[in-house]
Amino acid sequence: MTGTLYGVGLGPGDPELMTLKAARLIGGAKVIAYPTLAGGSSFARSIAAGHIVPGVREIVMDIPMTVDRAPAQAAYDLGAVAIRAELDAGHDVVVLCEGDPFFYGSFMYLYARLRADYPVEVVPGVSSVMSCAAVAGLPLAARNEVVTIMPAPELARRLSDTNPTQILPPCDTLVVMKLGRHLKAVRAAIEGAGLIDKAIYIERASTPDECVMPLSQAPEKAPYFSMILIVKGADPWL
């Protein structure tokens, strides 16, 4: 019999926002796997650290963050090989994933490589979108309102061939994720659409480094773990 592969969502950063199921699986794990960026420390592991017991075997996947997808895909290939060896030996493997495994989560790439051959269970997690709305005090949607979630790199790409006043999708609430180096372009699009006064900037929500402020007051540079919320407020939530 093979082991089971668990894709465990860890939430946005605050360890107390992990689910009870995630904590139980991590605490009982003999083998864990998680991504790192450019050989640095793992944000996912830091969230789960309080539940990782001594002696756990750790599979570290160094994932390059490049425009070219080939290096990252090769890294996931290597990670899948290491995980496959543990599963074939009958060992369960818990893969740590910040946020939710199936919402821009790294686990989905391992899932695609391993799901056909092994039992897999996905444990959902609190997404950064929900966390940012909570810390900003902005309900995302009420009644029949429409929410659009857009990665900043895609929004910046569209700016190259679209009028800034028309670039933002029609919706009641807009969430722009993964700001990083695209903050300047995204801010220009929001200003062009006349929505700067409704835009809130949130950085590293639920962590000790959390920042929440109007986008008009945001710094010139943003980390990857930051987003903008635009809630137009057509419904008063009453």
Rank of each mutant, 00 (worst) to 15 (best):
I167N: 01
A136T: 07
P151Q: 11
V53E: 14
V60R: 15
I63S: 02
S46K: 15
S128K: 09
I200A: 09
K21S: 00
V146P: 01
C97M: 07
G13V: 04
Q166M: 14
G50D: 02
A85L: 06
S206D: 05
A82I: 08
D77V: 11
P236W: 08
D172A: 11
L195Q: 14
D88G: 05
A222N: 05
A156Q: 05
A89F: 11
H91C: 12
S226Y: 11
L174V: 10
V146I: 12
I32G: 04
L215Y: 09
V56A: 10
L25C: 00
Y34I: 05
G194E: 01
V120D: 00
S216L: 12
A48D: 02
P54F: 12
P15S: 02
A134P: 01
S216F: 03
G79H: 06
A75D: 00
D77Q: 14
V56C: 11
A205T: 06
R57F: 11
D14S: 03
T148G: 03
V95Q: 02
V8E: 00
V212T: 06
L174T: 11
Y109E: 02
L17W: 04
V186H: 07
R69L: 13
A188C: 07
M213K: 09
Y34C: 05
C97W: 08
D88R: 15
L238S: 07
D77P: 06
A152M: 10
S226D: 01
L179Q: 02
G125H: 06
M65N: 08
V120I: 13
I196V: 15
Y76Q: 08
S106R: 09
D14W: 04
V176I: 15
V53T: 15
T4L: 00
A116S: 12
L195P: 04
I230R: 02
I47N: 04
S41A: 13
M227L: 15
A44H: 05
V120L: 03
P170A: 05
L155P: 01
G28W: 04
M227K: 12
I200R: 14
K198I: 09
A133E: 06
D100R: 14
K221A: 14
A152F: 12
G40C: 03
I26M: 02
P71H: 10
L110K: 09
S42E: 00
A70G: 03
I32W: 11
S216G: 10
L110A: 03
L25G: 00
L87S: 01
A74D: 11
A89S: 15
S128L: 09
G137L: 08
L110I: 09
Y34L: 06
P214N: 09
V95H: 08
